[in-house]
């Protein structure tokens, strides 16, 4: 029981770090900075989802984190591809 609670607390801490990353997303001078912040948020959200899956005691929720980890990569690649030029 205590372990579940500790997972919840860890998730809350990660959410606080997400706020910090959101700050960089807001003030980032270039789009690349914002993209890095988005990448960080992605990683943190995946971790949070895994932790919360354990905290809720629901095994099947972890699938969401897997989908998230796979697909945020695609979004990041699109942003990187755009930054790379080929900008007409």
């Amino acid at each position: 029981m205590i372990a579940e609670l500790s997972f919840g607390v860890a998730a809350a801490v990660l959410l606080a770090f997400m706020c910090v990353s959101m700050l960089r997303l807001a003030i980032g001078p270039t789009a690349a900075d914002r993209a890095v912040a988005l990448d960080t948020i992605n990683t943190l959200v995946v971790t949070t989802m895994v932790l919360l899956g354990a905290a809720f005691g629901q095994v099947i929720y972890v699938d969401v984190a897997i989908v998230y980890a796979l697909l945020s990569f695609v979004g990041t690649l699109y942003i990187a591809r755009y930054l790379e030029g080929g900008l007409k």
């Binding site: 997303l25 789009a31 912040a37 988005l38 948020i41 959200v45 949070t48 998230y68 945020s72």
Partner: peptide, 12 residues
Amino acid sequence: IALAASSLLLSL
């Protein structure tokens, strides 16, 4: 990028 972040957090 901000919209993507918002949408991801909405998913959370």
